[in-house]
Design a protein around this nucleic acid. Structure first.
Length: 449
DNA sequence: TCTGGGGTCCTAGGACCC
DNA sequence: TCTGGGGTCCTAGGACCC
């Protein structure tokens, strides 16, 4: 008897055409993206260890290969890695999202030109899935190499490419490509069942896309240690143990049965958030209200950029805890929300309810380390019913918003702000080591000498 | 002293309605 | 006075991703 798994595999490659049933998918992932961006404008740093910090200079979010080799941990707190960083004279940068955003756009444009406008799904700032429906199996690896070379020539950013019949297997391929850069030339294809088996047997279950910390612990406790072990578990088991339909999909994808398509146009956001850690913990309600007002106006900007309005305003604050444990986890989040009578994207109409909510959850005497605003119940502006009774001033409000957005875009991000955001900002984040925005600000442009 | 800032999807459970 | 079962909507929370 042939099991369903085997029969899927037998159908996988049609012998006459060499075209994989269901097509192939690639994931293109920039290598140490933020570090690569920083290095692009400081050629002195080529082959030197570099790290980039998160907002607030809190964690390490990107490491060059050299920094990895020295032993700097990903997502580790900066203050803990600092001795090592100083000892080895590693270059350190605060994150500069304006610069990374611009270079990201260039990489994505390159992919669209190479592979077709509609074949590219931008998955994150440094990753994209590419649909390769007609790619013959034997041409896949060569094509991956072509992508890699072209992107590097056109943008200066090096990428790794994984190719396989499903997104999850493509991610696994990419993981191996990055792991053995020397042999793989940053490209790996997993097309045949044999290739897939060998690859999955070599990957620990922890490193599979879709398996996070808590599932990893659970799986290892059950004796499921390799990706191959996981692939061979029954779907019913996955439904019970790994979050229902999500788990079942994961198993199918590992077997080569594609459950996730490439989506060229991402849906508009269902939720928009703006949140930050404070530069230092805060205990007075006034500072928290200032922060909330600032985040509300940031979120409102994002909302308008998407040409949408929101009906639900949620705010949250996170109390500071004293936890220096090795496996640090964030403490509880205290949140509350309110539903507005009508959706809006006008900043002051969102600030006001947001700030009022602070009273509901703030506890006097307690210190907080983080706060945020989330907007949901999002509707496109075009679908909002005109209301005869909406006063004229509302249109004025919209006009003002548009002006503010334009000014903020071309000048400094926060040059115009509402009075409620305050002016002292002792809660503002630290960002001491930011590089210039070489590609988007005239006054910070890279000079060729 | 010091541990990011976004997002998505799914499930469970309660309220409410007929 | 009795009170089933199904549907829908909402919220909270947990898991994941980069």
């Amino acid at each position: 008897m042939v099991s369903p798994v085997e029969s899927t595999h037998q159908k996988a490659v049609a012998a006459d055409t060499g075209i994989v049933h269901g097509g192939l998918k690639a994931i293109v992932d920039c290598n140490s993206f933020y570090c690569s961006c920083e290095r692009l404008f400081k050629p002195v740093l080529k082959n030197k260890p570099v790290v980039v910090l998160s907002n607030n200079d809190g964690c390490i979010v990107s490491r060059s290969d050299e920094a990895k080799q020295i032993g700097v941990q990903m997502a580790g707190p900066y203050f803990m890695a600092r001795p090592l960083i100083e000892k080895h004279d590693i270059a350190v940068f605060s994150s500069n999202y304006t610069l990374y955003g611009d270079l990201s756009w260039r990489v994505m444009e390159t992919l669209r030109q190479l592979c077709g406008e509609k074949k590219v799904e931008v998955y994150s700032v440094d990753e994209a899935f590419v649909d390769l429906p007609d790619m013959p199996a034997e041409a896949a690896a060569r094509y991956g190499l072509y992508i890699r070379k072209t992107v590097e020539q056109w943008t200066g950013i090096s990428v790794s490419v994984g190719i396989a019949p499903t997104k999850t297997l493509a991610k696994a391929a990419n993981y191996l490509a990055k792991k053995n850069k020397q042999q793989s030339w940053c490209v790996t294809a997993l097309i045949t069942p044999e290739e897939q088996q060998k690859a999955l047997q070599s990957i620990r279950v922890t490193n599979i896309w879709g398996v996070g910390r808590s599932y990893a612990d659970k799986l290892i406790n059950m004796g499921i240690t390799s990706a191959w072990d996981l692939r061979n578990m029954p779907e019913q088991w996955a439904i019970k143990q790994l979050g229902g339909v999500v788990g079942a999909r994961l198993i199918k994808e590992l077997r080569g049965e594609s459950c996730m398509d490439i989506r060229e146009q991402p849906d508009s956001k269902k939720m928009i958030a703006s949140t930050r850690m404070f530069g230092s913990p805060v205990n007075d309600i006034l500072s928290i209200k200032e922060a909330i007002a600032t985040y509300a106006s940031l979120a409102a900007q994002k909302l308008r950029r998407q040409r949408c309005s929101a009906r639900i305003v949620t705010i949250f604050i996170v109390p500071k805890e004293d936890n220096h444990a090795v496996d640090f986890r964030h403490g509880p989040v205290i949140s509350t929300s309110t539903t507005l009578p009508a959706a809006t994207s006008v900043t002051n109409e969102l600030i006001k309810p947001a700030v009022q909510l602070v009273e509901k959850i703030y506890e006097k005497g307690r210190f907080y380390k983080k706060a945020g605003v989330m907007l949901s119940g999002i509707e496109p502006d075009s679908s909002i019913q005109g209301n005869l009774f909406v006063p004229e001033s509302k249109n004025k409000g919209r006009f003002l918003m548009k002006m503010m957005d334009n000014i903020n875009f071309s000048m400094r991000n926060d040059i115009l702000k509402f009075a409620a955001s305050g002016t002292s900002r002792n809660w503002k984040m630290r960002q001491e080591k930011r590089s210039p925005r070489y590609t988007t600000r005239w006054e910070e442009m890279f000079e060729v000498k």
